[in-house]
Amino acid sequence: MSRLTDAHVTLAKEIIGRYPRPKSALVPLLHLAQEQDGYITRDAMVHIGQLVGVTSAEVYGTATFYEMFKFEPVGKYVVNICGTMSCALMGSEELMHHAEKRLGIKAGGTTADGMFTLEHAECQAACTEAPCLQVNYRYRYRLTPADLDQLIDDLSSERLTHEIPPHGTVAKVRQHIPPHLGVGAVEPELVTESPVWLDSKAAL
């Protein structure tokens, strides 16, 4: 449905320019598309293929490999409850059952109002803080069912919008390399010499 907006195309070109080969920008650009639409549209994949010079099929192959990319609309808030060992030992299944009951959906489903998608997630690197979950990739630690209820209340009443952007946006801060400060990416074929600093006795 939607290709990348002009503003995102500008951003996409900046991102592509950071890599020695354009295809490396594929995953970052898919994030950009998901940030724009909340999920990855067919047209966005075609557009990204054109921007980095690969076929739509290649974009599709890469995109579907990764868990975070969604190919149909999901809730504004995607709640990922970890179920791997440390969290499981600390009661994550109970938490998941509670979430399913509270939201009235099964893991993998989206609420009718489009606010929540509930997912079973694998290890989120917060094992000491089990059981944990992420809402749009923002952590909540050591949750009890009551904590989960409170979280859903807060999200439903949009009390956490300052911290948790709608699904699609991951990091709210982007890297930006001002052209005059950056070295610039060079195709590997064009580099044949060792870096200059290796020749000197000391750089400083």
């Binding site: 739509s56 099929a57 490999f65």
Partner: peptide, 15 residues
């Protein structure tokens, strides 16, 4: 190309 992952991997064209 291959799409999806793991046990669900399959060969497919772009839709």
């Amino acid at each position: 190309t291959f799409i999806h992952r793991g046990n669900n991997t399959q060969v497919m064209t772009f839709p």
